[in-house]
């Protein structure tokens, strides 16, 4: 194949892949709405996505807030605006860092696990076995995982925000000597509940992406252990990139609304 043929083949394969992903997610989303409703599977996945990710997300939130406080103090201190530290860091945490870092951490932990689990089920014919028993494997396997991620990633994001704000407050007021009065006053003045809600909404979308990509890659894994490994890597990379790209476009849409609100 010459380079042009290779490029053409890559474009065709990419479009086919996108088409396959769209069909898969449409089927999985429809599977969340229509019966049968498998609440036991949903709760099991919610426990896996939410409860088991809580400690890593809180740890990430705490240290992100703390390091951000140190860096911001250094920057704001140069032109005597340390009082803005609390509001600035909290806005950054709730609007951007919370949703993005929570989703990336959950993607690394949960998206990869979903791809690996479904990939292993595919290559060991367990998915065929589900289908052979007249059960829709997409609805059985993917729908509860995606629904659980949509529900739990925003809650994890809220926990990230909370712990991050506690981290920045502690470092700023107890360690860096920032005056607590203006610190909390401006935080309250500048940060609205809509900032938190907006971040949680974004993380619900990111939860949908990371779970659907993980399930899709695993569901169509091929070729034994190597194929499962490749599916897992592709899932984590693809959803990580998708989260960052989609975040940009959501922010473009949401930013004018925030300006109007102000």
């Amino acid at each position: 194949m010459n380079p042009i043929e290779r490029l053409g083949a890559w474009v065709i394969a990419s479009i086919e892949d996108l088409g396959g992903y769209t069909r898969f997610t449409a089927r999985a989303t429809w599977g969340m709405i229509r019966p049968p409703y498998r609440f036991r599977l949903l709760f099991k996945q919610m426990e896996f996505v939410g409860n088991q990710s809580l400690s890593i997300v809180m740890l990430t939130g705490a240290f992100t807030g703390m390091v951000f406080a140190v860096q911001s103090d250094f920057a704001f201190g140069r032109f005597g605006a340390r009082g803005l530290l609390g509001s600035t860091v909290t806005l950054a945490l709730t609007r951007e860092l919370g949703p993005i870092l929570t989703s990336l951490m959950v993607n690394g932990r949960v998206g990869s696990a979903m791809a690996a689990e479904l990939g292993t089920m595919r290559v060991t014919e367990q998915i065929d076995a589900i289908e052979s028993m007249s059960v829709d494997p997409v609805q059985y396997l993917a729908s509860p995982r995606i629904a659980a991620s949509i529900l739990m990633v925003p809650i994890l994001c809220a926990m990230f925000d909370l712990v991050g704000v506690i981290g920045v407050s502690y470092v700023a007021t107890q360690m860096l000597g920032v005056n607590p009065g203006p610190f909390y006053n401006r935080m309250e003045w500048f940060v609205d509940p809509d900032d938190i809600w907006g971040g949680m909404m974004k993380s619900a979308i990111f939860g949908y992406i990371l779970a659907s990509v993980g399930c899709y890659r695993g569901f169509y894994a091929r070729g034994g252990a190597e194929g499962v490994g490749q599916a897992t890597t592709r899932a984590v990379v693809a959803s990580g990139v998708a989260i960052l790209v989609i975040d940009y476009f959501i922010t473009l849409i949401l930013a004018p609304m925030s300006v109007n609100r102000a």
């Binding site: 089920m121 060991t124 014919e125 367990q126 076995a129 289908e131 052979s132 028993m133 007249s134």
Partner: peptide
């Protein structure tokens, strides 16, 4: 498929 039962090569039990 409800009329069929299938035993797979490697049993395909849900682990």
């Amino acid at each position: 498929r409800n009329r069929f039962g299938m035993v797979f090569q490697n049993a395909a039990l849900f682990d």
